[in-house]
Amino acid sequence: MLPHPKGQGGSGSPSGIPPLTRKEVEPGWAAGLRALYNTVVDEPIPDSFDDILKKLDESDDG
């Protein structure tokens, strides 16, 4: 039996076993993929790419 989303019934399963948490349900590789994604998102934008974006913004204004 799947756990109910928060606020949609039941405080646990009828057997008294607490519902599974996200970490117990997701596959093992998901944490590694999430960590990789977060490192990419946190990387700064290279100056050359930032310059290109500024030039494109300026050309849209004119």
Results as ranks from 00 to 15, higher is better:
K54A: 14
D50T: 11
P46N: 00
D42H: 05
K23A: 14
R34A: 09
P27K: 04
L56R: 11
I17K: 15
K54D: 13
P3T: 00
P18N: 04
P44F: 03
L33P: 00
P46G: 00
G7L: 01
G62F: 06
I45P: 00
F49Y: 11
S59N: 11
G10K: 06
P14D: 05
S15F: 07
V25Y: 04
S59Y: 09
E58Y: 07
P3S: 01
K6P: 06
D61R: 15
G62V: 08
S15C: 15
L2P: 13
G12V: 02
Y37E: 08
S48Y: 11
D60N: 13
G16T: 01
D57T: 03
S59M: 14
P3F: 00
D60H: 15
I17Q: 15
D47T: 10
F49V: 15
S15L: 15
Y37P: 01
E58F: 09
L53P: 01
G28K: 01
L33Q: 08
G9D: 02
W29F: 12
L56T: 12
D47A: 12
D47V: 07
H4V: 13
L56W: 11
I52N: 06
M1I: 15
Y37M: 10
S13L: 15
V25M: 08
K55L: 08
S48K: 12
K23G: 10
T39Q: 10
P5D: 01
D50W: 08
E43A: 15
H4L: 15
N38E: 11
P5V: 02
P14N: 03
G16R: 01
R22F: 15
P27F: 03
P44R: 04
D50L: 13
G28E: 03
K55Q: 07
S13R: 12
G10S: 06
S11D: 14
L20R: 11
P3E: 00
R22W: 14
G7W: 01
G10C: 09
G16K: 02
G9P: 00
I45V: 08
L36P: 04
G32W: 02
E26R: 13
T21H: 04
